[in-house]
Design a protein around this nucleic acid. Structure first.
Length: 433
RNA sequence: GUGGGCGUAGCCCAGAGGUUUAAGGCGCCAGGUUGUGGCCCUGGAGACCGAGGGUUCGAAUCCCUCCGUCCACCCCA
């Protein structure tokens, strides 16, 4: 028997309300902040990610789905969303658009990982990027947009962790400082950290192994070694968050798994989840576009995992607030009605009324049963009686009331009666908390 | 990549070597109403007991391997 590949999943009808709710909130908030949608291919040249994400990161070293296509090109299923957007920015000359270019995307992301709850090989991310402006206003905008997204879904208890990891002016000296500090302490470190010392020194500070904690506590902290511009940038952001009452915690050990970040990095973390530490995160990437072959162009962005968003909504008992379209079902009472039911359905569908029917070969009882279990609001019964008298019988499934009306007025009557079953949708309702 | 738990119908699961032709609940289908749903009653379909191998007179039950899944670590969204 075939199954979905390991770490992938079908999103079944029962979950689609959550997905459309979350997606519509994302789109709604991006519209509010004037971010435009972009869709990039799921496939990119492998080199794009090696140059952006960093070829010594976990993602590049062991998590990418990479293959050679039939033409001999090295192709990778995108393991993150920022690099493709930057590639598109360069490719389509967006440096000549008004800056910053503000874009958002929603789509699948692929990483070869050991699956767990909230950790999949194919998951979906919603992300935003503001490219082309170095100012901290946009760090602020991206973070507050993210916060508003979570708030609008009703998610509680997400802590915002913030750090600055400096820039190319101040970081190299700091990294050397860390390396020098650790040089005399190699003995006590865990095996992973011994490897990190030369390859990704900043990750040393992020180690969870107990044997490394003592060394971390006394290690030099980046926040004390930022250059003037980085310090000012951070201060502006902190001040802005404070003015907007966005609560955050400085976390000097926050280091993200992608090499392209400069200055601001941040993560949103659920309070009580084990395996999945972050629900979303992002940061500034002032050198990335240049690394990808574009003109030096700064940028800042955020991305969040939709599976984790939905998981957290369910954990917190938050329902998906989506619109419900009232439904009509047609039931045929006999052979004559059975012939007319599909014709009748088409008339309603032409009039934009959501209409379905069960097989007329079933007893009327069964047809009504199916209408009921599918959530029909109104059932139209059609049979020899109705056809002979030029009428339709309409039954209200909530009350069991039934009325007979002239055939000619059926559509108008249905439209009128269905209004009371209309439920508002996610868009424009509820609003941001 | 490391360590551990678990795999019995679509779903939740009983079952601990021989009263098993594998039980129950949900769901599904039909009938009880010859033109009428939800509740109730009756009946039915649906399981090569994850796969392969082994031990045994006998395996869903014990052992091994593989696969899947879940949890923790790691990493991240």
């Amino acid at each position: 028997m075939f199954r979905a590949p390991r770490g992938t999943q079908d999103i079944l009808p029962e979950d689609q309300d959550y997905w459309s709710f979350v997606r519509s909130k994302a789109a709604e908030i991006c519209q509010l902040y004037q971010y435009s949608r972009i869709d990039t291919p799921i496939l990119e040249q492998t080199e794009l990610f090696l140059r952006s994400v960093g070829d010594t990161t976990d993602i590049a070293e062991k998590q990418m789905y990479t293959f050679q296509d039939r033409g001999g090109d090295q192709i990778t299923l995108r393991p993150e969303g920022t690099a493709p957007v930057c590639r598109a920015y360069i490719e389509h000359g967006m440096q000549d658009w008004p800056q910053p270019v503000r874009l958002y995307y929603i789509g699948p992301i692929f990483r070869y990982e050991r699956p767990q709850k909230g950790r999949l090989r194919q998951h979906h991310q919603f992300g935003v990027e503001a490219i082309g402006d170095p100012s901290a206003e946009f760090d602020l905008q991206v973070i507050t947009l993210a916060r508003r997204f979570y708030d609008s879904l009703g998610l509680k208890e997400l802590t915002l962790q913030l750090n600055s990891i400096g820039c190319r002016v101040c970081r190299p000296a700091y990294v050397r400082g860390v390396q020098e500090y650790y040089a005399s302490r190699v003995e006590g470190l865990c095996a992973d950290c011994k490897g990190r010392l030369s390859r990704s020194p900043l990750r040393l500070l992020d180690c969870k192994d107990p044997s490394c904690q003592a060394a971390i506590n006394e290690a030099p902290r980046i926040l004390g070694h930022l250059c003037h511009d980085c310090a000012k940038h951070l201060e502006f952001l902190q001040d802005g968050l404070g003015k907007q009452r966005v609560v955050f915690q400085m976390n000097p050990y926050l280091v993200r798994g992608l090499d392209y970040y400069t200055r601001t990095v941040f993560e949103f973390q659920p309070s009580d989840v084990g395996g999945q530490s972050a629900i979303g995160g992002g940061g500034r990437y002032d050198d990335l576009i240049e690394q990808l072959g574009g003109k030096p162009t700064p940028g800042v962005g955020f991305a969040t995992g939709l599976e984790r968003v939905i998981l957290n909504m369910k954990n917190q008992g938050i329902p998906a607030d989506v619109g419900v379209t009232p439904k009509v079902w047609i039931a045929s009472a006999d052979a004559e009605g059975r012939r007319m039911a599909p014709v009748e359905a088409k008339k309603y569908q032409d009039a934009k009324i959501s209409t379905a029917y069960a097989s007329g070969s079933l007893s009327l009882r069964s047809q009504l049963g199916r209408a009921d279990s599918s959530g029909a609001n109104i059932v139209v019964v059609i049979g020899a009686n109705e056809l002979a008298s030029g009428t339709r019988t309409i039954r209200f499934m909530d009350t069991g009331e039934q009325i007979q009306i002239a055939e000619a007025s059926t559509i108008d009557t249905l439209k009128e009666e269905l209004k009371r079953f209309q439920k508002g949708g996610g868009i424009g309702r509820g609003g941001a908390a």
